[in-house]
């Protein structure tokens, strides 16, 4: 499948990446190469083969709902680019 610059822009928005206009052509070309690689699978009929999302043959790897464990708030916030009153902050979100 060929890739258009518009598609790249749409993908970039979904992934919250900014592709500047002067980067767009090169990125589209790179994406085209990668998609061409991925496209090697598209010609195959694999409908008889079940998808395998995990190689480990395990199930029910669960933990018990035991006593809660505390984690110090200073440490939780220690890497925050910005924090106020024990909260992480971002520019005002308007819905």
């Amino acid at each position: 499948m060929s890739v258009t610059p518009e598609q790249v822009k749409k993908l970039a928005h979904l992934a919250r990446l900014e592709i500047r206009d002067d980067e767009l052509a090169a990125m589209t070309r790179d994406m085209e190469q990668l998609v061409a690689l991925a496209d090697r699978l598209t010609a195959l009929d694999l409908s008889q083969t079940p998808p395998m999302d995990h190689v480990l043959p395990r199930a029910n790897v669960l933990r018990d709902d035991a006593e809660p464990v505390e984690f110090p708030r200073e440490q939780a916030l220690s890497g925050a680019p910005e924090a106020v009153d024990g909260c992480f902050t971002v520019p005002r979100v308007v819905e």
Binding site: L11, L14, A15, L17, M27, D30, M31, L34, V35
Partner: peptide
């Protein structure tokens, strides 16, 4: 970025 975009695609 390239790999994220392909993954998104």
């Amino acid at each position: 970025k390239r790999r994220i975009l392909l993954g998104t695609y």
